[in-house]
Amino acid sequence: MLAKRIIPCLDVREGRVVKGVQFENLRDAGDPVELAKYYVDERADELVFLDITASKEKRPIVYELVERVAEEVFIPFTIGGGLTSSKEIQEILKRGADKITLNTAAVHNPELIAEAAASFGSQCVVVAIDVKRVTPERWEIFTHGGSKATGLEAVAWARRVEEHGAGEIMLTSMDTDGRKSGYDLVITRKIGEALGIPVIASGGGGELNHFADAFQIGGADAALAASVFHFKKFKIKQVKEFLQAQNIPVRF
């Protein structure tokens, strides 16, 4: 059976991991490649690197990072952060990344999704959508790390993203992100039911049962988390053991 995926997210800036990661057994936990290898050994199912600098001038640093990761990591990995053109996407894929994420650029220019899907295949185009609950029944899309409202309704936008050829949705709730109080299960489920492509739940994973809820209640295909892994609240293996005990299919 297709396994539910657990995906650690690494925030990088100028080629270094940010968010003080603490691992005594790593020589350099600020090195994304070292940290990536650590998570691969822990049975992470995929890795996501988000470049929070995301400026064009710094792009060569990202390209170099992709090359280094691709030389040592033999599971799928995704690169995101400020990508605005097919050219940049091509450079990243050419160097060995499996997928890229589009976020703000997809909102400004939905055709970029279609262009990337047509050139490189839907399987490598992940569209990251950041949502906030604006009324009890309505979620809207925000860009620029959740700071700018777009007025776009979340489910309608997700459908559009799928129609444009996205292969996957990375859904982050700005309400739950960083709070460790659980994923936003309602919007995760709504979008999952409206779409035929996989949904990665993101934002709020803080306890073992949050992961189980993301799959069982939210209907997600994958769950992404950062700090619970970086700060060793639990290991990926522990999450998987917990999920397996709930009869959720996972890979060991």
Partner: peptide
Amino acid sequence: KKVPHMGWNE
């Protein structure tokens, strides 16, 4: 079923 079949399977 969801297509593509994407992810880890046995």
